[in-house]
Each structure stands twice: as C-alpha cells, then as structure tokens.
Simulated scan of single mutants.
Amino acid sequence: MGDLAEHRIIDGDRACDAVAAIGDRADVSRWAGVFAMLGEPGRLAILLAVHHAGPISVSDLAVAVGMNDAAVSQALRLLRHQQAVVSERDGRVIRYRLTDPVVGELLTRVRPAPQLHHGSAVTH
C-alpha cells in the first residue's frame, strides 16, 4: 500500500479497499487515456460513426461528423496511436474500423446501434 506512516488514516480497512479498487497505476493511466480520447466531441463522433457504420473512409467520416478531411485524418492518427482504430486498404480507398472491444462497449452505451441503411444515399 505504499508508505502510509506519513498519512493520517481514519479507517484502515476502507483505505486498503480504496487502494485495491484503484489497482495498478498503469491501468489507471491507460483508462485515463481512453476517457481523454472519448472526451473530445469530434473524436467521439468519429468513433461512434466508425463503430456503427465502419469500415468507413475518411471522406465519408468527414461528411458524417461535419469536419473537413484533414481534421478527420488528424483525429484518426491519434485514434490509431491509441489503438482504437485500424486502417484497411480497399483498392484505392483507406477505410477505418474499430479495434478495441472495450471502447466499442462504451460507445454502444453512449449511443446504441441506430437502424442503418447501407447503400442508401445521404440526404442530410
């Protein structure tokens, strides 16, 4: 539990339970990174689109999230670095798909799967 001699403890059992609940600090750091990744609205929108409509191209993502291609590409670089998405070549087109199942579960809680209309034209 570390050096507790310099701290005043009110309830030792609760303090130990709290330390156990926090767990490995590296895991806490990783989760903080996941929540930071989800905490920016543009990235969250991109992840929701990739999760529910992927694999999807940068251009199609840009239309869906209302950002330009360069901004989407920059966000996707970060998401690839966080290992949340991967790119796949489909002929001349690069498409992105979600790779982290835990992020996928979180995204499903944020926005349950909408009714999708693959093959229909965008009318917004």
Rank of each mutant, 00 (worst) to 15 (best):
T123E: 12
S120T: 11
G42L: 15
Y96P: 00
M37I: 09
A84G: 05
A62I: 03
M1C: 05
C16N: 15
N68D: 14
S57R: 00
H117P: 04
G91H: 01
G66L: 03
L76D: 01
V50N: 01
S73F: 06
A5K: 12
I56G: 00
A64H: 01
M37A: 15
H117G: 11
G66E: 04
G91C: 06
V63A: 09
A26N: 10
P112G: 12
R80F: 09
R14A: 13
V28P: 03
I56P: 02
Q82D: 13
D11A: 13
G42I: 12
L48Q: 06
I56Y: 01
A84P: 00
M37W: 07
E105I: 06
L79D: 06
Y96E: 01
D17I: 10
R30Q: 09
A121N: 10
G119W: 07
G42E: 11
G119F: 09
S57F: 00
D3S: 13
R8I: 13
P114T: 08
C16I: 15
I56E: 02
Y96N: 04
I10P: 00
I22R: 15
D69S: 11
F35Y: 12
V34S: 07
V122Y: 08
S29Y: 06
V28C: 06
A113M: 12
A20W: 08
D3E: 14
S73M: 05
I56V: 15
A20M: 14
A45Y: 03
R92M: 02
G12T: 09
M37C: 12
G39F: 02
V103L: 14
G2V: 04
V63H: 04
A32N: 06
A53N: 08
V63E: 05
A36K: 12
D60V: 05
A64L: 02
L48N: 03
V50Y: 01
A36C: 09
A5M: 10
R43N: 12
L116K: 13
D17F: 09
T108I: 11
S120A: 13
L106N: 06
A71Q: 12
D17P: 00
A64S: 05
A20L: 15
H52S: 14
A32T: 06
I9K: 09
D24G: 05
R8F: 11
H118A: 11
I10T: 07
A64K: 01
L106Y: 09
